[in-house]
Structures are given as C-alpha cells and as structure tokens.
Amino acid sequence: MAVPRALLGLRLAAWSLALYPAAELAWRLTHAALGPNPVEFLERYTGLWSLRLLLVALAMTPLRRFTGRVEFVQIRRLLGLWAFAWICVHFAVFLTFDLEWSPAKLVEEVAERTYITLGFTGWLLLLPLAITSTRGWQRRLGRRWKSLHRLVWPAVWLGGLHFLWLVKSDHREPLAYLAITALVLLLRAPWPLRGRKADPGKRLPA
C-alpha cells in the first residue's frame, strides 16, 4: 500500500530536521568552524538540538488536535527517537572529553553538580522509552505503555532545567525553552475544542 502523500511529506520533513544537525556539524568539522573550544561547542550544540527535537516531537499531539491530521502523530516516534539519539551524542561527547569514560568521575559529577544531576536523570528517564518504542513493546505493555511514556514530560522539564542551571547569568535562552515546554504542555491539556470532537485520536497513545 502506498504511503499517503501527506505522511510522506511529513516524514521527509522530520528526517530532514533530525539530520540537519549532523549536516551542519559535518560542514563545520570540515571547514574548521567549530570555534576556539570545539568540545564546548559540540556539547552546547547537541544539547540544544536534542531539546528542540524533543519539543517538536511533543508538539505533534497538539498539532494533531488542532488540525485533525493523524499524520502528525505518525511521525512522533521518529522525532522522539532522534531526539534521544542526539541526547546520547551529547552525553557521549561529555563522557569522552570531560570524563574520559571514568565511572568515578561520572559519579562525582552527577552527585556534585546540580545541572548534571538534572541532565543525567532526564537521560535515564528517556532510556526505557527509547527501548519500549517498538510496536512489540507497545503491544506487550498495553495500557501501561501510555503511562510509561508520560515520563517524557519530566524528562523534557529536566532537560530545560539542566540548561537553565548551567547558565551563569542572562537566563533568557533557557527560559525561552522552558516557556515553550509549558506552552506545548498547555496545548495538549484536555480542554474542549470548539466545533470538533475533543479527542479525535483517542485510540492513539499520548
């Protein structure tokens, strides 16, 4: 069966968005454009894109709601998994260049530095969601799958707070991300929509 045009377009857009950071990083790497502190740049850049992609993934539910187009929800897993993949890159850069894969250093950092505690916890919360993102797990977990995947919300808040806590002064940027998080959450709240059934995608997991 051919994939409907609308879904195809959305999938293409999602893949482009998810792979854009890889393309930009590849360009920067080959054009010596990573700046005077490449590791710091990589950490900041991958962290920001993780947060952006996670927020885009979370915006799919409200978009389906306002447009009535179920296709938005059909690209949600793709976006969520890519967000997680970028978080893993972000974490791997930190583990490699800051901690040199020392478990002792990781324990120290997670225990002593609040922003790392927050970020690490967020990653931990997302880990089971990535693992259980397959149809098989969805079937096996049944109704519990939906409850489990609500963990994405504490995770995205932790991501935003991880950013906020890291910034020494001038908190405008992390606050903007936290505001967007609040907005996305607000838009999916169960308030009735005029002239439309409140929840057209009831069968689909949130």
């Binding site: 502190n37 800051d98 806590w165």
Partner: peptide
C-alpha cells in the same frame, strides 16, 4: 569544588581533552 564546574581539570583552547 565548584557547584557548576569541577575545578580539578581544565581544557586549554585548542585541545580536546582536559
């Protein structure tokens, strides 16, 4: 110790590892 950055190491600009 500092609540934001471990002060035990540092990254020289131009180097990757601390």
């Amino acid at each position: 110790s500092h609540p934001r950055w471990s002060q035990s190491g540092e990254r020289r600009l131009g180097e990757l590892f601390k």
